[in-house]
Amino acid sequence: MKAVVYKGPFSVAVEEVPDPKIEHPNDVIVRITSSCICGSDLHMYEGRTAAEPGIVFGHENMGIVEEVGQAVTTIRKGDRVVMPFNVACGFCKNCVAGFTGFCLTVNPEPGFAGGAYGYVAMGPYTGGQAEYLRVPYADFNCLKLPEGTEFEDDFILLADIFPTGYHGAELADVRPGESVAVFGAGPVGLMAAYSCLLRGASKVFVVDRIKERLDKARE
Score class of each variant (00 low, 15 high):
154 D>F: 10
89 C>Y: 06
109 E>D: 02
118 G>H: 09
166 Y>A: 13
182 V>L: 04
103 C>V: 11
6 Y>D: 04
138 A>C: 13
76 R>V: 09
81 V>E: 02
7 K>R: 14
150 E>P: 00
26 N>E: 14
133 L>M: 15
175 R>I: 01
90 G>F: 08
88 A>D: 12
152 E>F: 01
218 R>V: 09
179 S>N: 10
18 P>S: 05
117 Y>W: 15
23 E>C: 08
121 A>H: 09
57 F>K: 00
204 V>E: 11
154 D>Y: 12
119 Y>K: 00
178 E>I: 01
89 C>A: 06
106 V>C: 12
122 M>P: 02
58 G>Q: 09
101 G>I: 00
99 F>V: 00
152 E>T: 10
120 V>K: 06
52 E>K: 14
68 V>Q: 05
34 S>F: 01
24 H>D: 15
55 I>N: 01
20 P>K: 12
18 P>L: 03
120 V>H: 14
216 K>F: 15
95 C>P: 10
200 G>A: 03
193 A>W: 01
140 F>E: 14
204 V>I: 13
120 V>Q: 11
179 S>L: 00
188 V>A: 06
166 Y>M: 11
13 A>R: 10
61 N>Y: 00
214 L>I: 04
67 E>H: 08
130 A>I: 06
26 N>L: 09
67 E>S: 06
1 M>R: 11
206 V>H: 05
56 V>P: 05
208 D>Q: 10
208 D>I: 10
85 F>M: 05
161 I>R: 08
186 G>D: 09
93 K>E: 15
126 T>W: 02
20 P>V: 13
155 F>H: 12
159 A>H: 02
189 G>P: 09
120 V>T: 14
41 D>H: 07
169 A>D: 00
175 R>C: 04
164 T>H: 05
204 V>R: 05
173 D>F: 03
91 F>R: 14
200 G>T: 05
139 D>G: 06
137 Y>G: 04
134 R>D: 08
94 N>A: 13
43 H>M: 09
19 D>S: 14
197 L>W: 00
180 V>Y: 00
205 F>A: 12
217 A>Q: 11
50 A>Q: 11
147 E>M: 02
4 V>P: 02
87 V>G: 06
